[in-house]
Simulated scan of single mutants.
Amino acid sequence: MKIVVITSSAHVAGASNYLADQFIAGAQASGHEVYRYNAVDHQNNFVMVDEENAAIVQHDDVEQLLHKVAQADLVAMVTPLYYFGMSSLLKTIVDRFYDHNHELKGNKQAVMIATAAGKDFASLKVHYRQIIDYMRWTDAGTIWDGGALAHPAIDEYGQQAYELGQELSAGN
């Protein structure tokens, strides 16, 4: 299975990146091919449209990512919770799906891994469901780490992330 993992936390040693590492390790242990795109390390322009509502092509790193997403079987989105939603870095990339909806819709699975100091993921859960419903993707699993600042909790969620990656199958 081809997997694209999109990470979006500026905290290099933070909980989101740790859980992404664990998910990737589990997926690779099961023989999956994983491509990681850390939004912090790339130029990610906002979606723009012209007067006819057609996407204006952006010449940035997201274009290459979108081609990888088009070829992927599964897209994993990893984000810290900021003001009840995904990070602006991840949101910018998700918005750019618009440029390639015809290529991206259907026949994919999705995973959401989110971290926060608290447990109020309600808005992000709704947003994630709306994204995958619109894209006609299948939910392959979620992790809602509401204890991201506590080391015992991160170890527990790290194990869950590893197992989620390890247990993925082509027809999950």
Rank of each mutant, 00 (worst) to 15 (best):
V75L: 11
L164D: 02
M112D: 05
F84G: 02
A39I: 03
A117C: 02
W137L: 07
T79A: 10
G106H: 13
D61H: 11
A10Q: 07
N17L: 10
F97N: 07
K105F: 10
V47A: 15
Q22D: 00
T138F: 08
D60V: 06
A55F: 01
D73Y: 02
R36Y: 03
I132H: 08
N107Y: 03
Y134D: 05
F97R: 08
A161I: 13
N38Y: 04
N45W: 00
I143N: 04
K105V: 14
Y35R: 10
H11T: 10
V40L: 11
Y82I: 14
A55T: 02
V4T: 07
D41L: 11
K105S: 13
W137M: 08
G118D: 12
R96M: 11
Y18W: 01
E51M: 13
K105R: 14
Y128W: 09
Q64G: 04
A117R: 02
G118N: 13
G141T: 04
H127P: 00
A122K: 13
A148T: 14
W137R: 07
A13K: 09
D145R: 08
N17V: 07
G31C: 13
A15T: 01
G165M: 10
I143G: 03
A54H: 11
D133E: 09
A70G: 14
Y83D: 05
H151V: 12
N38M: 04
V69M: 00
L66S: 09
A15N: 01
D21T: 12
F46I: 13
L66T: 04
S30Y: 01
G26T: 14
V47S: 14
H127R: 01
Y82N: 15
V69S: 03
A76R: 03
S87C: 03
W144E: 06
F121L: 07
G165N: 12
A13S: 08
Q43C: 14
G14Y: 01
E156I: 15
E52K: 14
H32V: 08
D21A: 12
V94Y: 06
D95A: 13
S16L: 01
T138E: 09
G106A: 15
H42L: 09
N45F: 02
A153E: 15
E167I: 04
E63I: 01
Q159P: 12
H11L: 05
D50C: 11
R36M: 09
A13M: 08
L74T: 15
A114N: 08
S16F: 00
V94M: 14
G141Q: 02
N53W: 04
D99S: 15
Q159K: 15
S16K: 00
E163T: 14
I154C: 06
A20M: 02
A150R: 10
D61P: 11
S123M: 05
V49Y: 03
M112K: 07
H127A: 03
D139F: 00
K2Q: 08
L19I: 06
A39E: 04
E63T: 06
A72C: 09
A54S: 09
M135N: 02
P152S: 01
A153R: 12
L149M: 00
Y35K: 11
R96K: 12
